[in-house]
Amino acid sequence: MNRAEIVLETRNLSMHFGGVRAVDRVDFSLSENELRCLIGPNGAGKSTFFKCLTGQLRPTAGDVLIRDVDVTGREPHEIGALGVGIKTQVPNVFEGLTTEENIWISARRWHRSSRARTLTTETIERLQLGDVRSEPVGRLAHGQRQWVELGMVVAAEPWLVLLDEPAAGMTHEETVRTAELIREINRTATLIVVEHDMQFIRMISRRVTLFHEGGILMEDTMEAISADARARQVYLGHRA
């Protein structure tokens, strides 16, 4: 990997909760415009890893570098201000506000009022949320709530996007649309996507990182990982 292309890097990153080593000495790097998938069994530490990257958790040890700047221990809003967007695993939306208001809040962070309004309208169309534009998000179905959150991420026009299980609980069609959307986002942004759905991963990704017990077990194409005996045992085996 060319050093100059690396946009995100962790060195020896660890996050321990008491005795639980949720993330343990992870060295990870991601190059510009990549679309990386993160897989691994439940409890492997993927969400915790994301939280360390976005400042929601302060790592026990190690560093996070974004474009060669050490951002370890910075506040989430500071990481966000660098142009990093995240969809969390447990949906974080503004329940009492409408779809439109949710997305507007995100767009308005970066743009003046009129531009924010057009960007909101565009995002709503792009995510096909027009029917629920004026509905409070708390009343929407699970899949749509996920999209509203995706819409918020997209409306901020980030260059680095982290998606934690974006297709969880979606129907097949919704999943396909989400995959399309992810590829579309990848045209202008670098992504890491956590997913369980193998078909979904094959749809979107070339390079896959396999997490296991807080560390990176291997990093390769999905085909190679599927063929690997260790990987099958820790992960694919679980699902069979």
């Binding site: 989430p76 809003h77 500071e78 966000g80």
Partner: peptide, 12 residues
Amino acid sequence: ENETRAELLAYD
């Protein structure tokens, strides 16, 4: 409505 989301959208 949601502090975490507001922070992640880069609001202090």
